[in-house]
C-alpha cells in the first residue's frame, strides 16, 4: 500500500491512505498515511458502521490539506471490541467418528451448509465464495481425496482458489446468526476446532516439507496457527 502511494505520487497524483502497520509506513514513507490501530483485514475499523468509517475516511482525507510531507498521522480511536458473552454461539458441533478425510470433511460440510445459506440470506445474498469455478461440495471432496491419498494437489492455482472459497464458506457459516462477532473467536474456531482447519494444517506440513513448495505453504495456514495447540494470544 505504501509503495503504491509513493509510485502514484511520483507520477503527480496525490495520494492519501490508511496504514495498519505503523512501523512499515514509517520506514517506507508514503506521502500521506493515517495509521489506525485496527486488526489486519479491517482498515476502516468496523463493518456496517458508516459513521465510524466516515470518521476514519475524514481523517485520512484531511491529510490532503497538508502542505509538506511525508506525513504519518495516528488515528486516535480504537475499534470497539465485542464482548464474548454477547457474541452468538457457534452453531455447529464439530468432529465426527468418520475414519477418512472424505467422511469427516463431508459430514462437517453438511452440518455447515444450512448455516451458510442462513448467513447468505442475512447478508442479502452477499458472499465471498466464488473464486473457484468448482462448487463447495466438489472443493471439499477434492481436498479430502488428496488427503486420503496422502498426495499434494496437482493443480496449485486451483487449490489456492479452492481453499479461499472453503475458508470464506466456513467464516460465513460460522457467522450466520445475527449479532456482532468477535473475529478472534471465529478465527480460533476455524483453525483449531474444524476438520477444515485440521486438513489445511496437513496440507501446510506437506508443502512445507517440499523445498520447491515451501513458499506456497505460507498461504495455506496463518502464521500464528502454526502451533499445534490453541493459543490464547491475540490472533490477527
Amino acid at each position: 500500500m505504501s509503495a503504491l502511494g509513493y509510485f502514484l505520487e511520483r507520477a503527480d497524483i496525490m495520494t492519501t491512505g490508511i496504514s495498519l502497520v505503523r512501523e512499515n509506513a514509517a520506514s517506507l514513507q508514503p506521502p500521506r498515511s493515517l495509521w489506525v490501530s485496527f486488526p489486519l483485514g479491517r482498515p476502516l475499523g468496523v463493518p456496517n458502521d458508516p459513521a465510524f468509517q466516515h470518521r476514519v475516511i475524514e481523517s485520512a482525507l484531511d491529510l490532503l490539506n497538508r502542505t509538506d510531507g511525508p506525513v504519518l498521522a495516528d488515528y486516535p480511536e480504537d475499534a470497539p471490541g465485542v464482548p464474548l458473552d454477547n457474541s452468538p454461539a457457534c452453531p455447529v458441533s464439530f468432529r465426527t467418528d468418520h475414519t477418512t478425510w472424505q467422511g469427516r470433511l463431508n459430514a462437517e460440510l453438511a452440518s455447515l451448509e444450512p448455516w451458510y445459506q442462513i448467513g447468505r440470506q442475512r447478508r442479502d445474498g452477499r458472499t465471498l465464495v466464488g473464486v473457484s469455478t468448482s462448487s463447495i461440495r466438489d472443493i471439499i471432496s477434492g481436498l479430502a481425496a488428496d488427503l486420503d491419498a496422502a498426495r499434494l494437489p496437482a493443480d496449485l492455482p486451483a487449490f489456492k482458489a479452492a481453499i479461499e472459497d472453503a475458508k470464506a464458506f466456513y467464516v460465513e457459516a460460522l457467522t450466520a446468526q445475527p449479532g456482532e462477532y468477535d473475529h478472534r473467536q471465529t478465527y480460533l474456531t476455524l483453525w483449531y476446532t474444524t476438520e477444515l482447519g485440521a486438513a489445511l494444517r496437513v496440507f501446510y506440513e506437506q508443502f512445507e516439507a517440499d523445498p520447491k513448495l515451501s513458499a506456497f505453504a505460507q498461504i495455506v495456514l496463518p502464521r500464528d496457527a502454526l502451533d499445534d495447540k490453541q493459543t490464547t494470544e491475540t490472533p490477527p
Binding site: 479491517r42 476502516l44 458472499t127 467464516v171 473475529h183 496463518p222 490477527p236
Partner: peptide, 26 residues
C-alpha cells in the same frame, strides 16, 4: 470478492461489509 493469497488477515469483517476494505459506499 477477494482472491488475496494471505491467510493472515481477518475475513469475517469483509464478509459482512466490503466497505471495510473498499469504502465505495462511503
Amino acid at each position: 470478492i477477494t482472491s488475496h493469497s494471505s491467510a493472515n488477515f481477518d475475513r469475517s469483517g469483509l464478509a459482512e461489509d466490503v466497505n471495510l476494505v473498499f469504502p465505495i459506499d462511503r
